[in-house]
Computed example of a mutant assay.
Amino acid sequence: MTATDTESRTPAPTAPLLEVDDLQVEFRVGQGVVSAVNGVSFTLEPGRTLAVVGESGSGKSVTAQAIMRLLQTPPARITGGRILFQGKDLLALPETEHRAVCGEHIAIVFQDALAALNPVYTVGFQLTEALRARRHLPRSAAKKRAIELLELVQVPNPKQRVKEYPHQFSGGMRQRVMIALALALEPEVLIADEPTTALDVTVQAQIMRLLGEIQRERQMGMILITHDLGVVAEVADQVNVMYAGRVVETATVDDIFARPGHPYTQALLRSIPRLDRKGQQLDAISGRPPELNRIPAGCPFHPRCERAEDICRTDPAPQLRELAGGRTAACHFAE
């Protein structure tokens, strides 16, 4: 990442668009209660990108689905916390009002576009449906806007492709259609949940560049959920690292890469393939993430941590504490 990239990022305004405060989500299943999200907090400002990273099962997507109220209830249940959009607590709203806010002001791009798009309707129908229902546009105006949206996300020959079905699009083009759907109502917040999964690196770069351009034009706040730290380095302003349903480190993107504080973040960074280590074996994090219905006592990461000591096993899980430079980490020994 270059100095120019850093300088071009938008300064953080004082009023956040979205605030998540002590969010807690659990699943009641046959094996007992699974604590999928345990006290997650963060803020998102206009024009900024917050990356949420961590291994599968860390709670990243559940957090996003809780914001959008897409969790299946039961077995899922939000047991605590607040989700504030422009100061309004979304969790206190009736479902119809919450749907109105999320439909127009907060949108999500899912990782599996083929599963998210309806295979029996054309992409044009799916784009115009929201416009006609929310904006009350006549059919002709909605179709014109659908074509404009496909142009916006750089789908070639949009006048023809608006008539086609999802299976007629490549993986990258389907992802562009998903982005067009998310942007149709011009939201202030965009949640991108693994938007480049299963795409080749060239298409990944195109998709992320496209999202960045649209974000800058509209000053959207974006939450990027990903396990790809290379993408994070290119597009993020702030990073939250999650492990076992908790945020274990927060920092600017520069600080995460230059001076990670939590041993888990350090281990994630060591596992990235690097050109200067050609032919060497990749470092791997030993063990595996804990089962969320059997999170170990003490620090959840201690069974896999090379720096673990007795305090990590016996004391309550450490909370986020402030480090130098405005960073925070949930570790007894983070510096």
Rank of each mutant, 00 (worst) to 15 (best):
A133K: 05
K144F: 10
S35D: 13
T10I: 15
M1H: 14
M220V: 02
T122H: 02
F169V: 11
R135K: 15
I67C: 07
A258V: 02
S8M: 09
T226N: 02
G325C: 05
S286K: 14
A141W: 01
L137R: 10
T79H: 01
P296V: 06
D89S: 09
R209V: 01
L320V: 06
Q266W: 03
A36Q: 05
L190I: 10
R218V: 02
R321W: 01
L210Y: 03
T197D: 00
V33H: 05
V120I: 12
V123C: 06
Q266L: 02
I191R: 02
E19K: 11
D5K: 14
Y121V: 06
P289D: 11
G326K: 02
L282T: 02
L90R: 00
D193K: 00
I191Y: 00
E194G: 05
N293H: 13
I223T: 01
Q215N: 09
A182E: 13
D315G: 08
Q219D: 15
K278W: 13
T14D: 07
P138M: 03
D200T: 09
E335Q: 15
V120M: 14
G103I: 03
L137S: 12
R321F: 01
T314K: 10
Q238Y: 07
P318G: 02
E129N: 03
T250A: 09
S271A: 14
P74I: 12
R270V: 00
C299I: 04
A36L: 08
T14K: 15
E129T: 09
S56D: 14
P316T: 04
L70Q: 08
